[in-house]
Structure formats: C-alpha cells, structure tokens
Amino acid sequence: MFKRLMMVALLVIAPLSAATAADQTNPYKLMDEAAQKTFDRLKNEQPQIRANPDYLRTIVDQELLPYVQVKYAGALVLGQYYKSATPAQREAYFAAFREYLKQAYGQALAMYHGQTYQIAPEQPLGDKTIVPIRVTIIDPNGRPPVRLDFQWRKNSQTGNWQAYDMIAEGVSMITTKQNEWGTLLRTKGIDGLTAQLKSISQQKITLEEKK
C-alpha cells in the first residue's frame, strides 16, 4: 500500500525546468507551479508516452532531478554507511541512485490517469530550513484521497528550496528505503546496493492501464 502511495505522490513532485522555475526561495510556489507544469506535460505528451513509456525517463531527467536534492536524499538512505564509504564508492552510488530515480519516478508518472491535487495554504517560513507541505491527491475514479507531506529543505548556501522526502501515513519514503535496503547494505555494503540500483534502473517502464 505504501509503495502505491509513494508512486501516486511522485506525480506531483516533478519540479519546473530552470527556464520557467518559480521563486526558488518559496517552496509553496515551487510546489504549486511544479504540480501544474507536471500535470500539463503528462496530459499533453501522452502520444509520446504511450508510444514509448521510457520517454518518461527524459521527462524526469529534464523536469524533476535538477530540483530534487538527489545527493542529500541518497546520503540519508545510506545512513551510517555513508561515512564509511570511499569517495569513489559515493560517486558510483550517487550515479546509480540518480539512474534509479529516473526509472522509479518514471514508473510513478506512468500512473497518471487524470488525477488532480490540492496544496495546503502557504504558511510563514520564518527562519525554518525544513518545511512540510501537505498535498491532497484526488483520484477521478473514486479512490479515497491521498494526503501527503512533502519535505522541502532550504539550501544554506543559495537560499533555494528543494524537495527531498515524502511522508505518507506517518511513514517517510527515506525511512522506507532504509528499511528495504538495510539488509543488503549490511551483507554486501554500498557496492552491493550500487549494483542492485544499476540493475533496477535497467527495467523498462510500463504503463498502468486505467481501472
């Protein structure tokens, strides 16, 4: 169930391209415009997507990853294993993690069937560096609404905000991946996880038929 919630949630996290980005210092504006741009692209490019579902990787690479804190999220997933990894191991892992996100997020976007969304009203940021933004996803086919909290983090150097995690039903996506990959990290280390991520990233994206 959580895996499905995570995939549905990713439908609204794909941010804007650099040329049309919203105010990078306001995570609420980023979330709002990102959702609108993403849904528009999914709707307008269905012919290309249906002809070649792996085209979704391109959308992810162009529109999402430049505005997601990939390395920060990847380091959180590694936890204690990050500090013990060599620079070469980290570089290989982050490259594999990025390719994994292209496949995983692309597969999530393949679930698009006309969903709509509501974003919580903007709250004062103050001096906060981590801000959760509640998004409610509404399914046109009558499924119950899904309420999610996207975690946005302020870059201490640039002042810009980027998304790095999502919490559904009190469970963090980062925590879920830590639990899912924990045994592999304990037995085969970061190299074993890197190899698995490379394998997963090679899987073809498949479209979910409308139910």
Rank of each mutant, 00 (worst) to 15 (best):
D165V: 07
N26M: 00
A22Y: 01
Y72G: 08
M31P: 08
M6S: 13
V77T: 13
G159N: 07
G126I: 15
D54Y: 10
E99F: 07
Y72S: 12
F97H: 03
G74C: 08
D127N: 11
P140M: 02
A35H: 04
V135K: 00
Q107P: 02
I49Q: 15
Q123F: 07
K83H: 02
L125W: 11
K128R: 03
W152G: 05
S156N: 02
D32C: 02
F39I: 13
A104H: 07
V60E: 08
K102R: 05
A92Y: 07
N26Y: 00
Q48E: 12
K43Q: 15
R41A: 12
A95N: 08
Q80H: 04
Q80F: 14
A9P: 05
Q123L: 11
Y93G: 13
K71N: 05
I133N: 10
P66A: 13
Q202K: 07
Y81A: 07
L5N: 02
Y72C: 08
N160Y: 14
L197R: 06
I137A: 15
Q69Y: 06
G142M: 14
V68T: 05
T176S: 09
G189E: 05
G142W: 07
L148Y: 15
R57M: 08
A88L: 08
L109R: 10
R153L: 06
N141M: 09
Q202E: 09
I137H: 15
K29Y: 09
N155E: 12
V135Y: 07
H113I: 14
L78A: 06
T206G: 07
A34P: 03
A120R: 07
N179P: 08
E180T: 08
T206V: 09
T129E: 03
A75N: 04
I130A: 06
W161T: 04
V135C: 15
A120L: 07
L148D: 14
K177P: 10
K128I: 10
I205S: 11
Q157L: 06
I174E: 09
M31S: 08
G106Y: 04
L207N: 15
Q123H: 13
P66N: 00
Q162N: 07
I49L: 01
I119D: 14
I167M: 01
T175M: 15
L16V: 04
A51V: 14
L11G: 08
V131M: 12
Y81E: 01
P124K: 06
K83G: 07
G79F: 04
R98L: 06
H113L: 13
L125M: 14
Y67K: 15
A95S: 01
L184Y: 08
Y28D: 12
S172V: 08
D191N: 03
A9F: 08
I137L: 12
I133C: 13
L78F: 09
A95V: 01
E169Y: 08
K3M: 04
I205W: 06
T183A: 03
K154L: 04
R153D: 01
K210M: 04
L30Y: 00
G114C: 08
K29Q: 09
A95E: 13
F97I: 03
Q196E: 00
L42S: 07
G170A: 13
K128Q: 05
D32F: 01
N141A: 11
T176H: 11
R186E: 02
Q69P: 06
M31C: 07
I130M: 05
E209K: 01
M1Y: 00
L5A: 01
T187S: 09
V60T: 08
E91W: 14
L30C: 04
T25Y: 14
T183C: 11
F97N: 00
E33V: 09
L109F: 15
L64K: 15
Y82E: 03
V171F: 12
Y67T: 03
S172G: 07
D54S: 01
L193P: 13
Q162G: 13
L125C: 12
L148T: 14
G74W: 02
R90T: 02
V146S: 11
R98K: 07
K188F: 05
V135S: 08
I205R: 10
Q48W: 10
Y55V: 03
K29E: 03
Y67W: 03
T58I: 15
P53R: 09
K204G: 11
L184T: 01
I59G: 07
W181Y: 15
V77I: 01
I205K: 14
Y67G: 03
I138Q: 14
T20N: 08
R98S: 11
E63C: 00
R153P: 10
L184V: 08
R98A: 03
A195I: 12
K177E: 09
L78C: 01
K188C: 06
F2N: 05
D139H: 05
L11N: 07
H113F: 04
